[in-house]
């Protein structure tokens, strides 16, 4: 599948934004951070910027962005529509929670409850995003539970690294300690999910073949001897993306090391080595930066490695 930059940015950025929201709500509910206005402005500012930036970027690949409002209508059947509805509904509790915290100086009691509702809506929105991909039988690499698990863990993992950096910068030690543990656990879980995902998609499982696509399988091996067209068409540009597959073997280690292992080691370092306050902040910032790079590569591979059934008509033997 063609890795559209707008969709890669959207899924990673909004995932991080929703993840950050989840942890802000948790910190408020557990009473680990008071309704500190500056912390609130930076935290919610970042979270909303990531979410809104991601959502806006996702409209860039539309042929008619001005008609995007129509996408809220078909939630009965369409996961893309459900994602739109969930994203908009989530803004209500999240916006209220931010107002309570930043304007009214209140993040306990009812404000925390609203925050937790917002956190649940954030996770639901990430889930609907993952289902847009996981529902597609035409792309076996996506049509499995690891896709859903990946989105549900990587967004909050990314958000936890940002929240940890903020808690450390604002000097909330208890919050930083909890987020540190959460981030380490999510990095381990995220890496495990991605490894299982890659095992699954490279495990030789076959859904459809050139034989079933053409109905000629009973005659033996089916190969295309003449293409309908000499130049690439929409189908080959959108669904027949091949560039990355030859680099996948190199890119997968980059995603693993930058996305998970370096942030993990940096987080461990902040706990055990005698770094000063500045050193810890630098290590946490580097951990987040490295994770960003790794996740962009991971998301790029998520698209580029996925084979679509239509390629069976253009020479692919099995998907």
């Amino acid at each position: 599948m063609h890795p559209a930059k707008s969709v890669i940015f959207f899924t990673t950025a909004s995932g991080a934004g929703y993840g950050l929201m989840v942890w802000l709500a948790l910190l408020a509910a557990l009473g680990l951070v008071p309704a500190d206005q500056a912390f609130g402005i930076v935290g919610f500012g970042l979270a909303f910027a990531l979410i809104v930036g991601g959502l806006l970027s996702s409209t860039f690949h539309l042929g008619h962005p001005e008609r995007a409002w129509r996408a809220f209508s078909q939630w009965r059947s369409s996961w893309l529509s459900r994602e739109g509805v969930a994203a908009v509904v989530a803004f209500l509790p999240l916006g209220l929670f931010a107002l309570c915290w930043v304007v009214m100086g209140e993040n306990r009691g009812n404000a925390a409850l609203i925050g937790l509702i917002g956190a649940a809506m954030s996770l639901l929105t990430i889930f609907t995003t993952s289902m847009i991909y996981a529902q597609l039988k035409t792309i076996p690499a996506w049509h499995n539970g690891w896709t859903v698990a990946g989105y549900l863990v990587l967004g909050p993992m990314n958000g936890a690294l940002i929240a940890l950096l903020l808690a450390q910068a604002f000097g909330y030690a208890d919050a930083a300690q909890l987020l540190h543990r959460l981030a380490v656990a999510l990095l381990v879980a995220g890496l495990a999910i991605k490894l299982f995902y890659w095992l699954r998609i490279h495990g030789g499982r076959v859904t459809s073949t050139a034989g079933t696509a053409t109905g000629l399988g009973h005659l033996g091996k089916v190969t295309m001897s003449a293409s309908p067209h000499d130049t690439d068409n929409y189908l080959l540009r959108e669904m027949g993306f091949r560039v990355a597959r030859k680099h996948a073997a190199k890119l997968r280690p980059i995603a693993i090391v930058a996305g998970f292992i370096i942030p993990f080691l940096l987080l461990v370092l902040t706990h055990h080595a005698g770094l000063g306050e500045g050193g810890i902040l630098l290590a946490l910032a580097l951990a987040w930066l490295s994770c960003q790079i790794g996740l962009y590569v991971e998301r790029w591979l998520f698209f580029a490695e996925a084979k679509h059934a239509v390629t069976l008509y253009y020479g692919e033997q099995a998907i």
Partner: peptide
């Protein structure tokens, strides 16, 4: 007249 050009339908069709 109401298609937004999101292309998801082309992803969902196995037959191109």
């Amino acid at each position: 007249d109401i298609c937004i050009g999101c292309k998801l339908c082309s992803w969902a069709c196995p037959y191109g």
